[in-house]
């Protein structure tokens, strides 16, 4: 079944100023997988995510989402099956209230008003933010904004959930909440993050990007424990997997 498949084949992309952000990225992600996308700043994570959502189109190579290649003409189908949660929730919550924002996707799908209201209620309920519905977006805390942004994507019921830095700028409690929320999703998940502890918790598989190429791709437990693999790509194993500085023993 190729229904919820996400794949990239020799994906290349250069920004108009000439910067080569992706230099031949290939992978296949199957239905129900949860994949962490890690890499140093400028490794190409965000650019890759924008390609998955069709917000950028490749210079060469191809991205496929479900049964469709990502091209200008298939964008409506792509966007129906794949939801992208942006790094800065302020960019994503552009409507006056949380409820309006969560309703934005379903309204664009042309759903009838009663159905839209149902989707909105269900999505807010799902992230535990039903009480935020009538609040103006700019008055929310960082954690609330993140929840609202996730709900705004869930309301269109995508099959594949893509998140850019879901735990950035959150306090520990809000981070924990997002983490347990992510774990509870049965969607195909692709999570780009510098928070390798989160990746280890949420994602069974990790893809390491380095300078626009895939440097490693495999089970998170193996890749993230391999300090010799991570060091050249300017990453470190999650704190949890590092030796304890006090007792010298590994923390597991």
């Amino acid at each position: 079944m190729s229904h919820h498949l996400v794949s990239a084949a020799d994906l290349r992309f250069a920004y108009p100023d000439g910067t080569e952000a992706l230099r031949g990225v290939s992978f296949v992600i199957h239905h129900g997988e949860s994949v962490g996308l890690v890499g140093a700043n400028g490794a190409g994570k965000s650019t890759l995510l924008l390609h998955l959502a069709g917000a950028l189109l490749p210079t060469s190579g191809q991205v496929r989402v479900g049964d469709w290649p990502v091209t200008a003409s298939t964008l409506p189908q792509i966007r129906r099956s794949l939801g992208l949660v942006f790094q800065d929730a302020d960019d994503q919550l552009f409507m006056p209230t949380v409820g309006d924002d969560v309703a934005f996707g379903p309204l664009n799908l042309g759903l009838p008003p009663a159905e839209v209201d149902r989707c909105v209620a269900a999505a807010l309920e799902r992230v535990g933010a039903a009480h935020l519905r009538d609040r103006p977006s700019h008055r929310l805390s960082g954690g609330e904004k993140r929840l609202a942004a996730i709900a705004a994507v869930l309301s269109s019921s995508p099959d594949i959930l893509v998140m850019d830095e879901p735990s950035a700028n959150l306090d520990p409690a809000a981070r924990r909440r997002i983490l347990s929320l992510l774990r509870s999703f049965e969607h195909t998940k692709i999570v780009a993050s510098h928070d390798l502890d989160l990746v280890l918790d949420v994602c069974a598989r990790t893809i390491v990007l380095h300078e626009g190429r895939v440097a490693a791709d495999g089970p998170s437990a193996e890749i993230l424990a391999d300090a010799r693999l991570l060091e050249p790509v300017r990453l470190e194993p999650p704190l949890r997997l590092q030796a304890c500085p006090r007792c010298g023993g590994a923390a597991r």
């Binding site: 959502a53 917000a55 309703a103 934005f104 996707g105 209201d117 705004a152 269109s156």
Partner: peptide, 22 residues
């Protein structure tokens, strides 16, 4: 830059030129 990111966020959720409200 923010305008560009917002525009992308709109596109990703099916924006077609009209901001619809409930």
């Amino acid at each position: 830059a923010r305008a560009q990111r917002i525009h992308r966020a709109m596109l990703c959720r099916g924006f077609d030129g009209v901001l619809r409200r409930r």
